[in-house]
Design a protein around this nucleic acid. Structure first.
Length: 115
DNA sequence: ACAGTGACAAGTC
DNA sequence: AGACTTGCCACTG
């Protein structure tokens, strides 16, 4: 025990702030988590995130709006399903960021992330 | 310490 | 629009 809050935890915390019905890009999460340029690490950290945190990984996708997983894979289907259940329209393995893209509010970030 | 790896992103053709 | 190239840097063996 030594490092209090690892980078991965900051990422998880940030993802947890994504409101239901919205989606965010990996790079965006990395940026909000205070780790600009660490988009790749975000994805890796997601895989390590424990279930107990209930991280809404399905609300995280690529900057282009495409799902991060391979089309047809079990993961992508689950992600699509979860998103649609939240009201997010997923067409052709992608999401319209103009409509469902998350635009973080400074107030909420301060309240939940306390940066 | 070093090299390989990666749920990405932006640029080029 | 699709395929390829480069940059990024934390993590792992």
């Amino acid at each position: 025990m030594k490092n209090e809050i690892s980078k991965a935890e900051r990422i998880w915390q940030t993802v947890l702030v994504i409101p239901k019905g919205k989606v965010a890009a990996y790079g965006q999460i990395a940026d909000l988590a205070g780790l600009p340029g660490r988009a790749r690490y975000v994805g890796k950290a997601m895989g390590q995130a424990p279930q107990s945190l209930q991280v809404p990984w399905h609300r995280v996708l690529r900057s282009s709006g495409q799902l991060a997983f391979d089309a047809g894979s079990q993961h992508s289907r689950l992600q699509t399903k979860l998103l649609q259940e939240e009201g997010v329209v997923v067409l052709n393995h992608r999401v319209n960021l103009n409509v469902f893209g998350w635009q973080p509010d400074l107030g909420e970030l301060l309240a939940k992330l306390s940066f």
